[in-house]
Design a protein around this nucleic acid. Structure first.
Lengths: 331, 331
DNA sequence: AGGGCCGACTGGAGCGTTCCAGTACCGTTG
DNA sequence: CAACGGTACTGGAACGCTCCAGTCGGCCCT
């Protein structure tokens, strides 16, 4: 294909093959009702000319582009990357393309990107971000099917949700610590969003069930320092369940700096199995979300919505505990 | 806008405003030649009806979609995220949308995504990945303007390139070490790709210029261990210039494990200012690429190509040295 | 007063598809 | 042998927009 020649259209193929454009269209889409001989001839000619069907024109005529959009709030978050990989593999399997919109963790940018993707004609959208208000999600959902990954900020209507079971994950973490023999376990929280809140509640319930007092400290109120000071007293906590890995990693650094031994002086469990959990030393014991599975499930739900299913559902997937080096029996 | 009503078109707006669809089109695109009174009336009506211009139809009619595509090989790489942010800010400034295609570090997936984005009708593509063969890039470049970020695997024709000045960055690192008084400086290499090779050569030249012997060790040949063993002898190296931060971080871990003091027993400099450079302790001294600037520059080049500029150029941007805790004067 | 010009606006063709209502031809059947 | 049904194929309308060639007044100039 020489440079800069205008791309061949279906009519060029039709003319070259000596048939009508309608027949070329049918042949290319693999429709029945085209004789085998004609089909192979048409396909050969199309290939020969370097013909590529124009998605814009097809989208205009059919109202479908065979492309789904994925809106992520933070590209550099490996959690998002894994979810996206799951989405892509499922979409690809169904013969759909995927484009990604990047919101740079800014709600306004996120909203703009969402609109842009819908304008571009995607058949549906998966939102991997908890930063968008319910009204923006609902507005988008009136245009195209929409599935959201993670706990929504507020519960939108008309939107399916896929997320990990935060309560269960927190319970895993607490069972692990309790099983090791810890009794004085503190929760270090750093966010008041939905997922963090669920984890915090589950912590409280696990402690209550074990007949132990629950204490939550907040990082934005100096909780990390308070936690460390307490841990160095004889009656202080022997373990900490942090709301996420970043919080846990910071605590770990500060603890080591303060001369505390981890895990022997203080056990730490995080949540998310973020990249940092593998990079700190000792490696962080944490709760892992089934990220790719979450992505695949989200794509599955979206595809069924695109195929006309009108129900919006909520799916929770099971997380799992990953034991690394920051937990041991209290001494 | 009640749910599921079909989206209003330009004709609906025209009818409601009592003008022709052509005039609506002109008014909406801000074309001159529409009286102010009529324009405001049309815009009000459009807004009222919740009209959104159909990008597919516009793209079909104009041959332009006002959207550019960004192809990245690895979403979870923060370097890529920063470059993308730079691209987006420049594109947004020019009124263009951005969609991202994700290649999951697999050349075949990358190629498929590239085709898909072109099919979708993007006006141009920026490739942030060195994994695509020159022929795939050239093929894509015959369809739309294409700019690539980073050193191409092989040099494609018809493609503009934006990258950091690896030679200069390596020279910064070496100047820093030499300035501190180091004389026995080893290079630890882990890749034979273009950027790594440029850094290696620049290391060699800097050493030659300082009249010192150059030694390159390869990680895939046990270079890290050899490096550490040598560093513990009296006449061994006092500093190491690593080809990238991942290699440097591994060396740092292993050095600390082996009981070597960093920086006093061994100084280490990395390259890239990856996330990990900030996470290790002590923080890694490294060379930072101007990532956002690279993205903005790539977008600028692409926009000018889209506007009809036919020249393909190659732009190198200046990196900078970031001094953290892994370098000090030799003792 | 007539011609020319300019600003505001219109109608229709065209972009590359899909979809629908046909047509032509063939073999089967009563 | 005419009616019928089915298969293979065709032509044109439609999708929602842009673009181009006009039309229509009103104003200025000579």
């Amino acid at each position: 294909m020489p440079a800069d020649r205008v791309a061949p259209t279906i009519v060029d193929v039709a003319r070259a093959a000596g048939v009508s454009k309608s027949l070329v269209s049918l042949a290319i889409r693999g429709d029945a009702g085209v004789s085998d001989a004609t089909r192979t001839r048409i396909l050969a000619v199309a290939d020969d000319l370097g013909y590529r069907s124009n998605v814009l024109a097809r989208g205009l005529a059919r109202g479908r582009t065979q492309v789904i959009g994925v809106l992520v709030s933070d590209l550099s978050n490996p959690y998002h990357a894994d979810v996206v990989a799951g989405i892509e593999s499922r979409a690809e399997h169904a013969g759909l393309g995927t484009v990604i919109g990047h919101g740079r963790s800014q709600p306004e940018v996120l909203a703009v990107r969402l609109d842009q993707m819908l304008d571009l004609g995607v058949d549906g959208v998966i939102v991997v971000s908890a930063m968008l208000p319910a009204e923006a999600l609902d507005a988008a959902a009136t245009r195209r099917p929409l599935v959201m990954v993670g706990r929504p900020f507020e519960q939108p209507r008309r939107v399916s949700v896929v997320r990990n079971h935060d309560e269960r994950g927190a319970a895993f973490a607490l069972d692990h610590l309790l099983g090791l023999g810890h009794r004085r376990i503190v929760h270090l929280a750093s966010s008041r969003r939905a997922a963090a809140t669920a984890r915090r509640h589950a912590y409280g319930e696990a402690m209550t069930r074990a007949d132990l007092p629950a204490t939550t400290l907040w990082t934005d109120e100096g909780g990390t320092a308070a936690m460390l000071a307490a841990a160095q007293t004889p009656e202080g906590p022997t373990a900490c369940f942090a709301g996420n890995d970043r919080t846990a990693a910071t605590l770990l650094h500060d603890a080591l700096d303060a001369g505390l031994d981890v895990p022997d002086g203080l056990s730490i469990v995080g949540y998310d199995d973020a990249q940092i959990a593998r990079q700190v030393r000792p490696g962080l014991t944490t709760v892992a979300q089934p990220r790719e599975a979450i992505g695949r499930e989200a794509a599955r739900l979206l595809l069924s919505r695109i195929d006309g299913d009108r129900d919006t559902v909520e799916v929770t997937l099971e997380p799992s505990l990953i034991v690394r080096g920051t937990t041991s029996a209290p001494c």
